[in-house]
């Protein structure tokens, strides 16, 4: 085992997959010598050259549109969108091209593309550089959505995403890049579509997305001392969602709380809550609780941004309220 940061884990995954398959290549703004705005791709151009680590012009739409075309012709591109907020510039290529090609070709064509983007608040970057976008994407048939919360998950899921023959949107949380974790020395891959029970518990199921997972774990640690046993599940993949693991947990604990940094209305929690309301109806002893950011743009000023992001206090209060 070795210690590694979240950003290094992603970099390792990219490097390993690029060594394994010459069809894998990266494209994005300032990803070559500059190493990317978050330094995830730093150093890769030295090993793989500028033909496989391509600096693009400032033109998000064609970055992803071209990636779709390259994927359709047999390459395996990993385009980067610098900030997930810019996803809106490439929505046509995700929704109307990438997500539809397999269907419209009746299975003849595939789009093996992994679209990486950094999302989330906490860096004081303001309304256009801090959003969480998974809620926007959940409604699109034909894509997969992955949000790792640890270095271990980030590396394993990135490898799986690159090997997947479908378009995968891989949302990295920018506040997690420097976090550290242990990973095996030997190669490993984490199957997409499998949630991870990060902490077992019996009183309440907390389904925590992306950077909310480490927070939920801290809260669980504190509550354990008060005699409250919290089960923390990290879905890891939102599409396809591992409903079985979530329902199994709620069958055990009888209470469900979903927490995410996306705005509350229409966020990923809404879909998960609706699924649980149907599939776990007979097990629930309390209404399903959702905690999300308020329905506002992300404010810049530090105390306002702190207020925006669901805090450990809010999560803790949410759990206590659920337990009555």
């Amino acid at each position: 085992m070795k210690e590694i940061t979240y950003r290094e884990a992603i970099r390792e995954a990219l490097a390993e997959e690029m060594r394994r398959d010459e069809k894998v290549f990266l494209l994005g703004e300032d990803i070559a010598n500059y190493g990317g705005s978050f330094k995830v791709t730093l150093g890769l151009v030295e090993e793989f050259g500028t033909n496989r680590v391509k600096d693009t012009p400032l033109a998000e739409s064609v970055i992803v549109g071209a990636a779709v075309g390259a994927a359709m012709i047999g390459m395996r591109p990993v385009p980067e969108i610098m900030f997930a907020d810019f996803m809106v510039l490439v929505m046509d290529h995700i929704v109307n091209n990438a997500a539809k090609m397999t269907y419209m070709s009746d299975g003849e064509v595939s789009v093996p593309m992994v679209l990486r983007a950094a999302q989330g608040a906490g860096s004081g970057s303001g309304a256009h550089h801090c959003q969480s976008v998974e809620g926007w994407l959940m409604n699109i048939p034909g894509i997969k959505i992955v949000l790792p919360s640890t270095p271990y998950d980030a590396k394993g899921l990135m490898k799986a995403a690159i090997r997947d023959n479908n378009p995968v949107v891989f949302l990295e949380h920018k506040m997690l890049y420097a976090t550290k974790g242990m990973i095996p020395e030997e190669e490993y891959v984490i199957e997409l579509g499998k949630a991870d029970v990060k902490r077992e518990g019996s009183d309440v199921t907390v389904i925590a997305i992306s950077a909310m997972a480490p927070k939920a774990l801290k809260v669980a640690e504190v509550l354990a001392k008060e005699g409250i046993s919290v089960e923390v599940i990290d879905p890891r993949t939102l599409k396809p969602l591992d409903t079985e693991t979530l329902v199994k947990s709620v069958a055990k604990t009888k209470r469900a709380l979903i927490v995410h940094e996306a705005c509350l209305t229409g966020g990923p929690g809404a879909e998960i809550a609706a699924i649980l309301a149907k599939e776990a109806f007979d097990y629930l002893d309390a209404p399903i609780t959702r905690i999300g950011a308020p329905d506002t743009p992300v404010p810049f000023s530090p105390p306002m941004e702190k207020f925006f992001i669901p805090s450990e206090q809010r999560i803790m209060q949410g759990i206590k309220d659920l337990l009555g």
């Binding site: 071209a66 779709v68 994927a71």
Partner: peptide, 8 residues
């Protein structure tokens, strides 16, 4: 854009 990427 797709054609340009395929050409790439």
């Amino acid at each position: 854009a797709v054609a340009t990427g395929a050409a790439l």
